[in-house]
């Protein structure tokens, strides 16, 4: 005897509940999503550097390049004294780069500082004789902002200290500078920060100038 199976119609998948859920999720995510990309600038504080006696010994030999930031402008010094560009000794006011208007750090003033620091980094103190640990000290600098300076100006100055200026002529900037600039990445395994390019390569000499910035804090 032949058996006939009753034809079973496959019902259509009801997508409306999923649609409702997705329609609810999208506005919620749109509201909470950040379309502005937020990054970071890495900073260290003075105490971190002078912990051991070896560090203290190293500090005596270090170049101690320091940028002092006041409302009037910038003053650059090292353990050899004033590091102002030739013809700008700093004077009694101790200023190498003066702001046209008090408290306003224009792009021109910051660019002038960056080009001068690049000159100090590459040409004047480019050789290892000035550094105990060339890999570390060569990239180290201290920034001392005065208390009334705005935080925004400090951040702009930190950019100028970190990145090699594009289009510099004396000495010329490297031609193969990565577009990502001087990037710091957090190594989750070692749980520490490292200087790396977007593809993981070391970009210290191609993009970074003074990326180990020590920010003076407290009453200093």
């Amino acid at each position: 005897m032949r058996k006939y199976r009753a034809s079973q119609e496959v019902g259509e998948l009801n997508l409306l509940p999923i649609m409702n859920l997705i329609s609810l999720l999208i506005p919620f995510l749109l509201l909470s999503a950040q379309f502005i990309q937020i990054g970071i600038i890495l900073i260290q504080t003075p105490r971190l550097k002078s912990q051991s006696s070896a560090d203290k010994k190293q500090k005596k030999k270090a170049l101690n390049l320091t940028v002092i930031m006041t409302g009037k402008g910038y003053y650059v010094k090292s353990r050899f004294g004033s590091e102002c560009p030739p013809g700008k000794a700093g004077g009694e006011e101790k200023l190498c780069f003066r702001n046209k208007e008090k408290g306003k750090f224009t792009a021109d003033t910051i660019r002038a500082l960056q080009l001068h620091l690049w000159y100090l980094y590459k040409r004047k103190y480019g050789s290892s004789q000035y550094y105990e640990d060339e890999k570390m000290d060569h990239h180290s600098i201290t920034l001392v902002p005065q208390h009334d300076v705005k935080y925004e100006a400090v951040v702009k100055t930190l950019d100028a200290l970190r990145e090699i200026p594009a289009g510099a002529k004396d000495p010329p900037s490297p031609t193969n500078m990565p577009a990502s600039g001087c990037r710091m990445t957090f190594d989750k395994k070692a749980h520490t920060w490292m200087v790396q390019g977007a593809k993981g390569e070391d970009v210290t000499e191609r993009a970074c100038m003074y990326h180990l910035v020590t920010l003076a804090i407290g009453a200093s």
Partner: peptide
Amino acid sequence: LPKSMSTSNMA
């Protein structure tokens, strides 16, 4: 937040 040229990402 201030604007910066830094390309480093948060951890």
